[in-house]
Design a protein around this nucleic acid. Sequence first.
DNA 1: GCTTTCCATTGATCTGAATCAAGAAAAGTC
DNA 2: GACTTTTCTTGATTCAGATCAATGGAAAGC
Lengths: 192, 192
Amino acid sequence: MYDNYFRQLTAKMPLTDDERALIQSFLSVKKIRRKQYLLQEGDVCKVVAFVEKGALRSYTVDNEGKEHVLQFALEGWFISDLYSFLTGEVSVYTIEAIDDSELVLINQPAHEELLKRSPSYQAYMLQLITGAYIALQRRVTSTISLSPEERYRDLVALYPNIVQRVPQHMIASYLGLTPETLSRIRRRLADE
Amino acid sequence: MYDNYFRQLTAKMPLTDDERALIQSFLSVKKIRRKQYLLQEGDVCKVVAFVEKGALRSYTVDNEGKEHVLQFALEGWFISDLYSFLTGEVSVYTIEAIDDSELVLINQPAHEELLKRSPSYQAYMLQLITGAYIALQRRVTSTISLSPEERYRDLVALYPNIVQRVPQHMIASYLGLTPETLSRIRRRLADE
DNA sequence: GCTTTCCATTGATCTGAATCAAGAAAAGTC
DNA sequence: GACTTTTCTTGATTCAGATCAATGGAAAGC
């Protein structure tokens, strides 16, 4: 159940059996079906989710009712609204399963407790947030300095598995394009 | 010299005199003149800078030679390319002083050492990166879900001091607009 | 204080992506 | 396996913001 989670964790952070048991005692498992929500806009984000299996995305809805994808999370990734999770403020994001998925969850009190009790967990969290920060910064850089076509190529180069796995209109939304525009970009690239 | 820095730090993290002395021994001070660089594209980012006085910005230059502002830092803010600083990879960003400025710097080895030796510093760094992450996430959200006019209003509401202090064409660049477009938006808003 | 560079504004025009519309194909559901 | 829903594609049209161009004014630098 926690296989991928601990594979990931121990790869970065060797753990004693005791520490592993301690951490595991604070985790829980959840299965979630395609199109179900892990978080809804207006709620406080209660958990950080590790994707054991499946795929999820987070998105905002603007005034005109349009969705804008913030992040995808495939197997081995984390997803959450860290802002809401850490501050307790309500979230402007929705997190939804793209496919039937299996998640490993940790809630806020458990997270607090583990930070205090496990130095490994603490160090891991610092790495996690740093990684999230770096991924976001790359995204911002791409958004502000590349053309739509370049942004798409960048995404394909960096996360080919996302492009293969996720419906195209969600990729378009992630890139800040309409599905029509992305379709035309793909044709242009294929024609060359 | 380190007044603002420690005011900021102790506000979040009570320090013993010893700890303060330890941290201070790892810091250095730098004055930098308007238009001088703290970091140039292609170099590794060696420091995290706290702005005691003045104002800086970071930006990327795209294929066509256009600048895109990633971040502003006024008094009391930090600026760096954390990605480059932490990984040692070269940076795609330039960090430049907008006005003559005074900075408190910490370099990578000092940062490593302090992480090991000062739990307060460690906890502070976690807060810092978390804060940076949250600020970036807000920026992404604004970029993907708001119109240019809404983005500008958001910026004015959130950081009025930036808008007052920084040349308008840099604000435009930060918002992903041309100076002309921002000028027209401002007129529209003033006319109403 | 004078010169030069930089900066904000306004108008005219252009353009790339959005929108609108419709049909085909694929996937999901019962 | 038939039906429904979702997804992708293609074409025609529109539109918001970029680009091009020019001016007046402010700040920087000597």
